[in-house]
Computed example of a mutant assay.
Amino acid sequence: MAGAVEIPMIVYLMGGGAMLFVLLVGGAVMSFSGGEQVKSRRLGTVTKRAKVDEVKKKESGIKVIDDGRNAKGLDKVIRKLLPNPNLLRQRLMQAGLETTLNQYFIVCLGVGVFITLLNYKVSGLSLVPSMLFGVGGGLGLPSVILKWLIGRRREKFLGKLPEAMDLMVRGLRSGLPVSETIKTVGAEIEKPIGTEFSRVVDDLQLGRTMEESLWRCADRIGVTEFRFFVVCISVQRETGGNLGETLANLSEILRKRRAAKLKIKALSSEARFSAYLIGSLPFVMGGILYTLNPGYISKLFIDPTGITMLSVGGTWLTIGFATMAKMVRFEI
Rank of each mutant, 00 (worst) to 15 (best):
I253Q: 09
L289K: 02
G175V: 07
S40R: 13
S213K: 03
G194F: 02
G16P: 05
I193A: 02
K57F: 11
F283D: 03
A248E: 14
L141A: 08
K58I: 12
K48Y: 11
V230Y: 11
V169R: 01
Y276V: 10
Q236M: 11
D67T: 08
V46R: 09
G240I: 13
P83D: 13
L250M: 02
G17C: 15
L204K: 04
L292V: 14
L267N: 08
S33V: 09
N293R: 06
L289W: 11
E252H: 06
A71L: 11
I115K: 01
R89D: 15
Q205A: 13
M324E: 00
L43F: 13
M165R: 01
G186W: 01
K51T: 10
I65Y: 14
I115C: 11
S60K: 10
A2M: 06
R255M: 07
K326H: 04
I65P: 03
G27D: 04
L141V: 15
G286K: 05
I10Q: 08
V185W: 00
T224N: 04
R154I: 10
D66M: 06
L97K: 08
G241K: 06
S126N: 09
L117K: 05
A260I: 12
I62D: 08
V11F: 15
A50M: 10
Y12S: 02
M285Y: 08
L250H: 00
G73K: 15
L281Q: 00
A248N: 11
V46N: 01
R42W: 09
V107I: 15
S234C: 01
A2G: 13
S280G: 15
L292D: 06
L292G: 06
I7G: 07
S40L: 08
P162V: 10
C108L: 06
S126I: 07
S311H: 03
L87M: 14
Y104Q: 08
Y276S: 04
K39H: 14
L292T: 11
S143P: 00
G15N: 09
R89T: 07
G17W: 12
L109H: 08
T209K: 01
M165G: 00
G313Y: 10
R220V: 04
L23Y: 07
G137D: 11
P129S: 09
V200G: 10
G3P: 14
R227P: 00
V5N: 07
V25D: 06
S298C: 01
L281A: 07
T100S: 15
Y290M: 14
L204P: 08
V11P: 02
I150H: 10
E188Y: 02
S31Q: 10
G222M: 12
I115R: 03
R49L: 07
V25Q: 09
K48Q: 09
L117C: 13
V201E: 07
I106E: 05
V113C: 10
Q37Y: 07
K56Y: 14
L92Y: 09
W215H: 08
A4Y: 11
L167G: 00
G207D: 09
V223N: 05
M9L: 15
S251Q: 00
G134S: 08
V64C: 05
T181A: 05
L87K: 15
K160R: 14
R272P: 00
L161F: 12
L161N: 02
L254Q: 07
R91P: 01
N249E: 12
G34L: 05
R79G: 05
N242V: 04
L300A: 09
P177G: 04
K72H: 03
V201S: 10
L158H: 01
G134D: 13
